[in-house]
Design a protein around this nucleic acid. Structure first.
Lengths: 191, 191
DNA sequence: CACCGTATAGTCGGTTCCGACTAATAGGGA
DNA sequence: TCCCTATTAGTCGGAACCGACTATACGGTG
């Protein structure tokens, strides 16, 4: 029973937008891109239209009008349905309550870290740490800017979370690199 | 240039196994399941055979023999190629060095946390925290068991990493729930 | 020794996802 | 005015992914 019909989080994003006001697909995409700058949601023209269609098929959203400007093809404007609003909240609730197992690429790589050999592994981890530090600086800048504009913190809460996760990863990478260097993480023979 | 032909991390896992010794697809899957208990790599029969085929197409692995036992269908045993070994290490190196942006479901959900309202959001975060605590206990048990068997730490290094990440997420969830409760995370009007 | 659950081994059709490509218009400079 | 680029808006075919389903062998048990 926990398997909803739609699992793609882009659908969650689109539905969330339509709860604010009706839009046509392209507008949803550009609004998301502006708000989240490409992180948080992966927006790809192909997936966008597929997802909108899927949402419409399940009656979570529905077309409210098709407008035509000049010679451009018609744009279909969608709005959420009452069912859509309910599903949105229920889905959100579930996503927060139950951690789902995901498969980040870095975890896969770490599981074969041995194959890099100690020196190269240490070096690679240190490089990762530098990249992470940059991203954290970027997040801090974004957060500071938002606060500066007087926007509520809740508006950027996912950036706070991601920053926190990066900070943790940075700590792990640095500590592990140090352990490799000091020899406290022993390296078994590797072919 | 950073776009390798194969991106699926299951391919990384399979290649890693074949560096140890030749195997047929089903054996790769069961070995992975045994070692990682379903986390780290997502193993699905469909993807498995697709991925093996794709690896073979790119000459990272190649069939070395087809054996038949009884009336069962032939099993094709694969081994890595020299190209495969090189690509494996290069890919691994890259995965460790460069953090790639991924799109975890929880981040998507957090970005719409406002829509749950403060009480429900706090409650959901607290429930998540409990689930995370259980998973951390599970990881600790797995780590303790491995250490007990005298296996090298490096063998479970990805579990250490995941545990660390969960711990960080747990901290964030608890802290955020507390901030909602105390009012230090103000909740703007939500429709 | 017939029955049944479990392990072995894999197939196949459908859905989802992706990103290169198309095409029209608006705006700005030479 | 003409051209160039950026923005708007979306299409389409292929690649990846998924999981229900098939089918055989094997080890116990009543």
């Amino acid at each position: 029973m926990p398997s909803r019909k739609i699992r793609n989080t882009l659908a969650l994003a689109l539905l969330g937008l339509l709860l604010e006001r009706p839009m046509h697909p392209y507008e949803m995409a550009s609004t998301l891109r502006e708000r989240y700058k490409g992180s948080t949601f992966k927006i790809n023209p192909g997936s966008l239209y597929d997802t909108v269609e899927s949402l419409a098929k399940h009656r979570w959203i529905e077309p409210v009008e098709t407008v035509r400007e000049g010679n451009r093809p018609e744009r279909t404007v969608y709005a959420h349905t009452e069912l859509g609003r309910q599903e949105f909240v229920a889905w959100l609730d579930e996503l927060v309550r139950e951690p789902v197992t995901e498969y980040p690429k870095f975890v896969a790589a770490v599981s074969y870290l041995g194959a890099l050999g100690p020196e190269r592994a240490r070096d690679a981890l240190e490089e990762r740490a530098r990249h992470l530090a940059e991203r954290i600086d970027g997040a801090d800048a974004a957060l500071a800017e938002t606060v500066g504009k007087g926007a509520p913190r809740l508006f950027m809460i996912e950036v706070e979370f991601v920053r926190h996760a990066w900070q943790a990863e940075l700590g792990w990478a640095r500590r592990t690199a140090a352990e490799i260097r000091s020899g406290s993480l022993p390296w078994p023979d590797h072919s």
